[in-house]
Design a protein around this nucleic acid. Structure first.
Lengths: 201, 201
DNA sequence: TCCGTCTACCTAACGCCGTTAAAGAAACCG
DNA sequence: CGGTTTCTTTAACGGCGTTAGGTAGACGGA
């Protein structure tokens, strides 16, 4: 592997700067006005480049959005890693669920975009998949300890469905008065149904 | 209230026929190619009218889609009414959940459209709201019998979140291998957490 | 029967969208 | 210096949701 020349480095830096500026403007537009109001032309106006330049750097709208979502999910992954992993696996599961839901509620536009059906060709943003894998760790521990009343995959899919619906309903149905302690109560009921105190066999 | 004249009736009939033809074509296009590929112009080609005529009858795209969704939800309402209402409230809840989820899985495009954030001005299609109210009946019965471990609203919101996430995940994340008995197992766990056998006080 | 009114429907167009073709400008490399 | 590659632009294509404006025909009262 050869040493990078100063010129090459400068070129890569300027490319990185352009991508950074475009991504930042994308983020700002999405947070301010939501995805519905987002367009490549408005983004071009906002970030100072013209639309074809954005295409030069990101390919198309989908890849641009995916790049942004991947970055955001890296934030979630960092949060999940930071969440205290106690010896109490149940407490662990609760903490992860809380972090995940908080991510969704604080980034409703991003979460909605992540939830939309994807072209089967394109893979889910890597960091999103990484977050999903991380979330499974406490379940794996509980399964290994024989404390689940169903197999790990089953419990994981059920928990995922609950958390997913929880986030989407609260972010899309703003006409409903949602209970503030809904997550804790729901998770408790969920744990009552799927986790027992001690190993059975 | 005056008697309707034949001419007036004929006029209303022809208006109803036009609406019917447009709605049928909308339904067909949505089922065949999904909402992404749907457009007023393609609909115009399909149903034989031009686009402005569709606007004449339905106002705009949103109202057209809403009219279709309302019709579909009336089907769900009929199904829910038909579901056997036994004396076993838990069995009842299970049956309703099953019917609701089946509706979502069989009409993924419609369900996704129902789930999208709405302009705060427009109301949810009436039949959708009616279905939601119907779904709460078994919960109300259980609450009245003192068999819920949390108040009815809380339990209802949790169950709604689970069912909603269940449907959306399975229809949008087709890359995942979902467990076939996921609904039954999830509902069982849910009931274990939220419903007790007999009244406590 | 005639005439104003109203409904249904059309053609043409506006301003937006995502995207691409083509070309100039600038930096890099030999 | 000359050739190549990268970045950026202007101009355009086809499609979108929607609206303005006009026409043909049915309706209802004189």
């Amino acid at each position: 592997m050869s040493v990078m020349q100063p010129a090459e480095r400068r070129r890569l830096q300027s490319r990185a700067d352009a991508r950074r500026a475009i991504l930042d403007a994308t983020e700002a537009l999405l947070v301010e006005d939501g995805y519905e109001a987002f367009s490549m032309r408005r983004l071009a106006d906002r970030c100072g480049y013209t639309a074809p330049t954005i295409y030069h750097h990101f390919g198309d709208k989908q890849h641009l959005i995916d790049a942004l979502l991947d970055e955001r999910c890296q934030g979630l992954v960092r949060t999940l890693r930071r969440v205290h992993q106690s010896e109490d696996l149940v407490e662990n599961l609760r903490a992860f669920s809380g972090a995940f839901v908080r991510f969704g509620l604080r980034n409703p536009t991003h979460y909605a975009l992540l939830s939309q059906p994807r072209d089967p060709g394109l893979p889910v943003p890597p960091a999103a998949e990484e977050a999903r894998v991380l979330m499974e760790a406490p379940l794996h521990g509980l399964a290994a300890a024989g404390r689940l009343t169903a197999d790990q995959e089953m419990v994981g899919q059920s928990l995922w469905a609950f958390l997913h619906g929880f986030i989407l309903l609260r972010t899309t149905r703003t006409d409903v008065e949602w209970r503030k302690d809904g997550l804790d109560v729901g998770i408790d009921a969920f744990l009552t149904g799927f986790v027992r105190e001690e190993a059975s066999r």
